[in-house]
């Protein structure tokens, strides 16, 4: 991994804070509803960063499995917001071309398209677009559920467009 990427990663405040403050107690891992499905526990991810294993971290499944429920964050004795930490790691993985979480990346992409086009999203449209991109069979299985939504007047395929939405073109 290039030094520039490493530096950017380590300068990210939520990552930096975790590396600095973590006492490796494992409260986060044991609080996480999804840690059983992760390849490394959240605590281990912090320790891997401390030991320079950036590549392995950005390649890991763990960072994409966080549901940002923040249970770890409110229980952490070092007051580290590990939810924010995971979001930051995802950002670094994404911007550095680690594309091992295909499903999630497609979701993000679909999401971003909506935002950039309308400024708002339609969950129904988002789910349909996303399903078609990833798993058309599953999309078909969803039809009964969709019909049910429709019956209850919930399946709106419209998206309202936000006026005056220049912010999305801002250079950051």
């Amino acid at each position: 991994m290039s030094e520039v990427i490493t530096l950017r990663l380590l300068e990210d405040s939520s990552i930096h804070t975790a590396i600095k403050k973590c006492i490796q107690c494992g409260t986060c891992s044991a609080s996480c509803p999804l840690s059983h499905y992760m390849d490394y526990t959240p605590r281990k991810i912090v320790n891997m960063l401390r030991n320079g294993m950036y590549n392995e971290v950005l390649k890991s499944k763990t960072i994409w499995l966080c549901s940002t429920c923040y249970l770890c964050a409110v229980r952490c004795p070092a007051k580290i917001n590990l939810g924010e930490f995971m979001i930051s790691l995802r950002r670094h993985a994404l911007s550095n071309g680690y594309n091992n979480a295909q499903e999630y990346l497609k979701l993000i992409k679909t999401y971003a398209e909506f935002i950039e086009k309308y400024g708002r999203i339609s969950e129904a449209m988002l789910m349909i677009n996303y399903s078609l991109k990833t798993n058309p069979v599953k999309a078909i299985k969803m039809i009964p559920f969709a019909l049910n939504l429709m019956k209850n007047g919930l399946l709106s395929l419209r998206v309202e467009k936000v006026n005056d939405f220049q912010v999305v073109k801002t250079k950051t």
Partner: peptide, 8 residues
């Protein structure tokens, strides 16, 4: 988490 094993 048994942090020495990395297992919850």
């Amino acid at each position: 988490e048994d942090t020495l094993l990395g297992v919850v």
